[in-house]
């Protein structure tokens, strides 16, 4: 029938419009995001030449090194450990903050939220650097302690400082999703709990926390992932004393002489796979809750 062919023509027109909308952005992402990831994957199976040049000889040696040499294995373990700690601290500090914000009247709430958002928009490097001024041996804390006649402390270039910097940098990413979850939470449920004789703590533990778990999970993912690849904080505040994955990758690509791109690529690939595992786990847990 003539009309139904007209309908098909409409569909084709729609199709062309869709392609015109998708093409520029998707092509860019395919060429300058996905394809490079593929290149890294290929590099990770190549051999590093004596002068840091690439030799097109396929090998598994990079992966073997990664999983057998203790300095590399340690870097992974250390990264996972400090990312886990960062996530935990961000959660412990961020949840009560989000709760506080949710309970404010709308206007105050907006201001408090924007105040949490601002650090997200400001230069990470600069904010981490600010801690150097505070923690340095001749920095704010130690000069203050000195002025009061107290012994000075060795604060900068410690793992504690790294952890502090990471929690500081990632806290907003924990607060925002938890806030969103708490905003949707029906607080009359807490009253219902109290009505049924639940203690406040009990009501929090058995009603509020489980119901805001999606927000907590989203926050955990948002904090954990960037922390795994970081190298700036451990360099600026940790004094680059111990290696995390990020430091190793950066060194293998930019600093070491000769550079070792294949090994760096293998490290990056393994990191990505580990993280994608976490992300899949996260999506699985959220979709299961939807069901």
């Amino acid at each position: 029938m003539a009309l139904s062919s007209f309908e098909r023509e409409q569909q084709r027109r729609e199709q062309r419009r869709l392609i015109a909308l998708l093409a520029p952005g998707m092509l860019w992402l395919l060429v300058f995001f996905l394809l490079p990831l593929l290149v890294i994957l290929v590099y990770s199976f190549l051999t590093n030449g004596p002068r840091g040049n690439l030799l097109w000889q396929p090998t598994l040696q990079n992966y073997v090194d990664l999983f057998t040499q203790s300095s590399y294995v340690n870097a992974y373990v250390r990264s996972l450990w400090i990312s886990g700690l960062t996530t935990l601290f961000a959660l412990l500090l961020g949840y009560p903050l989000a709760l506080f914000i949710v309970k404010q009247p709308p206007r105050v709430r907006l201001v408090l939220l924007i105040l949490v958002l601002i650090p997200f928009w400001t230069n990470f490097l600069v904010r981490i650097y600010a801690w150097q001024i505070i923690l340095a041996n001749n920095g704010l804390i130690n000069t203050t302690l000195g002025a009061m006649g107290l012994p000075t402390l060795f604060l900068l270039n410690t793992e504690g400082a790294t952890l502090l910097g990471l929690v500081y940098g990632e806290l907003p990413f924990m607060v925002l999703p938890i806030y969103a979850a708490l905003d949707r939470f029906d607080f009359t449920l807490m009253e219902a709990g109290a009505d049924l004789g639940a203690s406040k703590w009990h009501a929090f533990w058995h009603i509020m926390l489980p119901m805001t778990m999606p927000g907590v999970a989203a926050g955990a993912v948002l904090v954990f992932i960037p922390t795994i690849g970081q190298f700036v904080v451990s360099e600026l505040l940790g004094g680059a004393k111990v290696d995390y994955i990020g430091n190793l990758i950066q060194r293998l690509f930019l600093r070491s002489n000769p550079p070792n791109w294949p090994l760096g690529s293998a490290m990056s690939t393994v990191m990505m796979i580990v993280l994608l595992g976490f992300i899949l786990l996260y999506f699985r847990s959220t979709t299961e809750e939807d069901r």
Partner: peptide
């Protein structure tokens, strides 16, 4: 690109 660590994107773009 939003969720993966920036360094992974950086090194892959460098290699590419």
């Amino acid at each position: 690109p939003v969720v993966i660590p920036e360094i992974a994107m950086a090194v892959s773009l460098l290699a590419f």
